[in-house]
């Protein structure tokens, strides 16, 4: 397993190098003519006004929260899916299936709750 992840680490470093290398080439090759206008934010040619890093609505946060709930669910669903066949062959099929249906129903209740509360409505 560790050699596998050794390769993944190598791939990660190589990918970073692969992304940065063209920029190095650009720094050597491309022209550099700096002007104040070039450094401005491009907002359709209109001078930018006010603070850019504004506050955002709570809606985004609610989506992230829901996402977290469903993301953690994969921790449960994936091992279940891996183990299901083996446990079914061992004779626990119905039990394991019902377990997962109960779990999915719990998740669905969360989804229905969010839906009914109007949190799934984009504004």
């Amino acid at each position: 397993m560790l050699p596998n992840y050794g390769f993944i680490g190598l791939l990660l470093l190589a990918a970073v190098a692969f992304a940065v290398a063209p920029l190095v080439v650009v720094a050597l090759v491309a022209p550099r003519k700096w002007s104040v206008e070039k450094g401005e934010a491009y907002e359709c040619g209109v001078r930018t006004t006010g603070e850019t890093w504004v506050r955002f609505r709570i809606q985004y946060y609610v989506y992230a929260l829901l996402f977290l709930v469903f993301d953690i669910e994969t921790i449960f669903l994936y091992p279940w899916a891996v183990s299901y066949l083996g446990l079914a062959e061992a004779g626990f099929g119905l039990f394991v299936l019902v377990e997962m249906v109960v779990f999915l129903v719990l998740l669905a209740v969360a989804l229905v709750f969010a839906w009914a509360a109007g949190d799934l409505r984009w504004v």
Binding site: P22, V25, V26, A30, P31, R32, V36, K38, G39, A41
Partner: peptide, 17 residues
């Protein structure tokens, strides 16, 4: 490659990359 490498003045340079 031959285009200029422009980073906006106000940008957060490291995270921009």
């Amino acid at each position: 490659i031959t285009k200029e490498n422009i980073v906006p003045r106000a940008a957060d340079a490291v995270t921009h990359l």
